[in-house]
């Protein structure tokens, strides 16, 4: 069952036309954004293994093309609602990497002042809603934000990310139905990485794809290769345009794969070796880089330079975070209610 899924996706993909690369500035911008996510997540993993950060982590590397492909062309005033696996989405939406690193270290200058942690990363000033660790609960919230965009007569939109597992929560059904009913400007982005924790997606639903669930709500649904950056970007561009002009929501199902386990010490024992190797060979960054070089948009040297400068940014963020101040313990008592004269 799992293998057929992979094969099915690959034949789907080869049947589709290859989406052309964008102009050079955008192409390199997207490359840099994906590399930023990869290097950030690799650094976090390392810090976690070394015991320099604590708690738990749910990592997004391997899924960079989903975050960047969907979010690259959004505006800071567009909202983005993420999940327990938020780092890629946040970085692609423009949350400061330093502020995220500080949050991971539990520092006062973290993007949530140390109160949120890995699963609640966000920065509302760039439209990144504090991420939601209750699976599926960000979906109705995103719909409410979209309703606000509509009532305030803006043409801003909401991007709502969730996993394959989340589509079996009540919030998925209630949220998408509401958004469809009122033609709200939301792009629902399901990153189907085949597993919700240790459970295979096909063991949780009778239908073959998540995209086909869109039909039940009367909205478009599309399954796309989530490791093909340009395919994601092309589909997202259409869905975003539709939302902006008041055409209503779209459900995108992006087929992808996480490199790491579900959470901190998960060794992914439930993933068959052949499935793992097939997907890991389709690394979205390598795929995109291959095209950039092949189609002569950039040279290897230029791309290496981008990687090095991002690595410096990440290293700098770690140093900055480690030398930043812890919150005062009593800070824990602030921010419970609005209206307390707080900053």
């Amino acid at each position: 069952m799992k293998n057929t899924d992979t094969i099915q996706l690959e034949s789907d993909v080869s049947a589709k036309t290859v989406v052309a690369l964008p102009e050079r500035t955008k192409a390199l911008g997207m490359y840099e954004s994906m590399v930023r996510i990869r290097k950030y997540e690799e650094q976090i993993y390392f810090l976690f293994l070394e015991g320099r950060i604590s708690g738990s982590i749910h990592q997004s590397h391997g899924q960079e093309a989903c975050a960047v492909g969907v979010l690259y062309d959004t505006r800071p005033t567009d909202y983005m609602a993420s999940t327990h696996r938020p780092a890629g989405h946040d970085l692609a939406k423009g949350v400061s990497l330093r502020a995220m690193m500080c949050e991971m270290f539990g520092k006062a200058n973290g993007c949530c002042h140390g109160k949120g942690g890995a699963m609640h990363m966000g920065d509302i000033s760039v439209g990144a809603v504090p991420a939601n660790a209750i699976v599926g609960s960000n979906i109705p919230i995103a719909v409410g934000m979209a309703y606000s965009c509509k009532l305030r007569r803006t043409d801003d939109i909401v991007v709502c990310f969730f996993g394959d597992g989340a589509t079996n929560e009540g919030g998925f059904h209630e949220g998408i139905n509401g958004a469809a009913l009122w033609d709200l400007p939301v792009v629902f982005v399901c990153e189907n990485n085949f597993y919700g924790a240790s459970t295979h997606v096909q063991a949780t639903m009778k239908v073959q794809t998540i995209a086909e669930r869109a039909a039940a709500y009367g909205i478009p649904g599309e399954r796309i290769d989530g490791n093909d950056l340009m395919a994601v970007n092309e589909a997202a561009t259409r869905a975003i345009a539709r939302a902006r002009r008041g055409g209503g929501p779209t459900l995108l199902e992006l087929m992808t794969y996480r490199i790491a386990g579900h959470s901190r010490s998960d060794a992914s024992a439930y993933r068959p070796d052949d499935e793992e190797s097939a997907w890991l060979a389709r690394d979205p960054i390598k795929l995109f880089r291959g095209r950039l070089v092949e189609e002569k948009v950039a040279t290897d040297a230029e791309l290496d330079a981008i990687e090095n400068s991002v690595q410096e940014e990440v290293d700098g963020a770690v140093q900055f975070a480690e030398s930043s101040q812890d919150p005062e313990p009593e800070d824990a008592l602030r921010n419970v209610y609005a209206g307390e004269g707080e900053v």
């Binding site: 949050e103 973290g110 140390g114 109160k115 942690g117 919150p327 313990p329 824990a332 419970v336």
Partner: peptide, 11 residues
């Protein structure tokens, strides 16, 4: 204390 649980270890 009557607050949601904060993430940072010190808090």
């Amino acid at each position: 204390y009557d607050v949601p649980i904060p993430c940072a270890p010190v808090m």
